Amino acid sequence: MSKRHQYVDLLASLPALPATPFGREPLPISAIRLERRLETLSDAHRDTLEALESLLDWRHLGLELSTVAYIHRYRQAAPRLAEQGVKDLVEAQLEQCTLVAALRRRRSGDPAPALGETWGIGPRLAHIGAHWQAALFGLGAVFPWLAEAREHLAQDRPRELERRLIEENWRRLERARRYDRFDFREVVIYWLRWRLIAAWRRYNAEAAQRRLRADIARGLGDYGVLFQEVESDG
Results as ranks from 00 to 15, higher is better:
residue 153 L to E: 05
residue 18 P to N: 06
residue 7 Y to G: 01
residue 207 A to Y: 14
residue 221 G to C: 08
residue 208 A to I: 05
residue 59 R to V: 10
residue 116 G to V: 07
residue 220 L to Y: 06
residue 189 I to Y: 01
residue 121 I to T: 03
residue 212 L to A: 15
residue 122 G to M: 01
residue 171 R to V: 12
residue 72 H to D: 11
residue 160 E to S: 14
residue 57 D to W: 10
residue 4 R to T: 08
residue 220 L to D: 04
residue 160 E to C: 09
residue 66 S to M: 07
residue 196 L to M: 11
residue 25 E to N: 07
residue 218 R to H: 09
residue 31 A to Y: 00
residue 49 L to E: 01
residue 55 L to V: 06
residue 99 L to E: 03
residue 142 V to G: 10
residue 224 G to S: 11
residue 221 G to T: 07
residue 53 E to I: 07
residue 208 A to R: 09
residue 67 T to D: 09
residue 212 L to V: 06
residue 151 E to W: 11
residue 102 A to T: 08
residue 150 R to E: 10
residue 43 D to S: 12
residue 47 D to G: 14
residue 114 A to T: 05
residue 110 D to H: 13
residue 102 A to C: 08
residue 132 W to A: 03
residue 4 R to F: 11
residue 231 E to K: 13
residue 118 T to L: 07
residue 116 G to R: 06
residue 125 L to S: 02
residue 55 L to A: 05
residue 84 Q to F: 07
residue 193 R to D: 04
residue 80 R to M: 10
residue 151 E to D: 13
residue 196 L to H: 00
residue 41 L to V: 00
residue 69 A to W: 03
residue 173 L to M: 09
residue 40 T to Q: 12
residue 101 A to W: 00
residue 171 R to A: 11
residue 145 W to Y: 08
residue 149 A to D: 00
residue 223 Y to I: 14
residue 218 R to Y: 03
residue 160 E to L: 11
residue 8 V to W: 05
residue 3 K to Q: 12
residue 75 R to S: 08
residue 226 L to T: 14
residue 105 R to Q: 15
residue 224 G to T: 07
residue 182 F to P: 04
residue 62 G to L: 08
residue 218 R to W: 02
residue 139 L to C: 10
residue 49 L to S: 04
residue 192 L to W: 03
residue 95 E to Y: 01
residue 64 E to F: 15
residue 208 A to Y: 01
residue 52 L to E: 02
residue 150 R to F: 07
residue 195 R to M: 09
residue 174 E to S: 09
residue 97 C to P: 00
residue 215 D to H: 09
residue 15 P to M: 06
residue 222 D to F: 03
residue 128 I to F: 06
residue 150 R to P: 00
residue 71 I to T: 01
residue 26 P to W: 08
residue 102 A to H: 02
residue 86 V to D: 00
residue 31 A to D: 09
residue 179 Y to W: 07
residue 182 F to Y: 03
residue 154 A to Y: 01
residue 58 W to T: 14
residue 106 R to S: 11
residue 166 I to V: 14
residue 233 D to N: 14
residue 198 A to F: 02
residue 133 Q to A: 15
residue 188 V to S: 07
residue 107 R to S: 15
residue 111 P to H: 12
residue 226 L to M: 13
residue 155 Q to I: 03
residue 10 L to H: 03
residue 206 E to A: 04
residue 131 H to Y: 10
residue 69 A to I: 02
residue 7 Y to D: 03
residue 151 E to P: 00
residue 11 L to D: 05
residue 116 G to F: 04
residue 66 S to Q: 05
residue 175 R to W: 11
